[in-house]
Design a protein around this nucleic acid. Structure first.
Lengths: 198, 198
DNA sequence: GCTCATTTTGAGCACCCGTTCAATTATAGT
DNA sequence: ACTATAATTGAACGGGTGCTCAAAATGAGC
């Protein structure tokens, strides 16, 4: 009955997300995006509505793949705490690979945008909360297992972990090359409050 | 022999810095700046050369006032460690006052800019190193005083502190209102490696 | 009060921005 | 093959961007 869209939506969003991730929202122009995703303005606007609409979908895609990454770490690990450590190592060493930016896209977005783009800002904040909640869930499991003591709530520990990850990734990004970062990760998981008890 | 400039250079840079700090480099237009600093394009370009030139001076101004702030904390405190804590508290609670953004302008800049603005990026990174060096100096004093044990180098401790500050400020910025932040600061200075040995 | 180096002004430039939409192309259903 | 419908194209629009520069305003030194 009609012509089917020839582009793969998820793949397109992924490419857009990578460009947004690298350059940020304001520095990425629609013409930049047109080249990267190989679509003309009309198609882009028909599919995503606006520059903001595409960015929002890019954010969602990024957050979802982050959660998927965490789940993968859970499958590949023997314990919740080991999974978290694996996830953190992956997130931080990702900048050496093909990641567009060493920094977390959600953090970059929260850092860049103001209330002028309230919807996008809220989306990024919400996704950060989602990730933190996933952390808390794993930390609660670790406490139930006896892998971690219960002197602090899973929520507080998740917040602590979030602060550490944000701090380390941002710091690493600001100091081009530094291999002392791994030591930092070790320290987080071998000192209170996240030290496993053998 | 000539007409003296009627504008106060430092005051102007301060106003520009506040706008840049609030909105970021890309989202701040020259016309925004013209309004805030009350100067016409010709004067601005005669004085600062370009949007980047003005931003660079804004960054320098910001970093200098940060160091000045730290020195003030030293004068108002009994010990190096107390000075650092005071500084951290001031930096983080500043977002409730008149600060344009809860986040550190240097971190925002490092997060936003790419190699496309290499000079500005380098300036921001350099300033972060400068601050970290100032931290290290105070931490070394704390070790000499016996206020802090010497199991880690001042540089390593300064890096640790920097990561904590970046993490907390960014986290606080992403979670609009949160008074559990003060607890976080307490924790930093009452747990290893920065716990004083009173 | 005249001179003249300097600062200030603001209209305007070339270019890029996000976005629109009429025309074209493509295809599933008949 | 024809039709109906949707996807795609790309020229073009209004407006904002960073920036320029000739003209006007200013005031210190004589």
């Amino acid at each position: 009955m009609s012509k089917p869209a020839k582009f793969n939506r998820e793949e397109t969003i992924q490419k857009a997300a990578n460009l947004y991730w690298e350059k940020g929202f304001h520095a990425t122009s629609m013409r930049n995006l047109q080249e990267v995703i190989d679509m003309r303005p009309g198609s882009i606007y028909a599919s995503f509505g606006s520059k903001e609409g595409l960015f929002k979908e890019a954010l969602q895609h990024y957050a979802q793949s982050g959660v998927a990454q965490l789940n993968l770490c859970v499958e590949q690990s023997d314990s919740p705490l080991a999974a978290l450590k694996l996830f953190v190592e992956g997130a931080i060493s990702s900048r050496k690979q093909n990641a567009p930016s060493g920094m977390c896209m959600l953090v970059k977005t929260v850092a860049e945008l103001t209330e002028e783009h309230a919807e996008l800002l809220a989306e990024a904040k919400q996704s950060l909360i989602m990730v933190e909640t996933a952390f808390a869930k794993l930390l609660a499991q670790a406490q139930d297992n006896g892998e971690l003591d219960s002197s602090q709530t899973p929520q507080a520990l998740a917040r602590f972990l979030q602060v550490q990850i944000i701090g380390i990734r941002t710091y690493a990004h600001a100091n081009s090359d530094d291999n002392t970062i791994q030591d930092f990760i070790e320290a987080i998981f071998s000192n209170p409050p996240l030290a496993g008890r053998a």
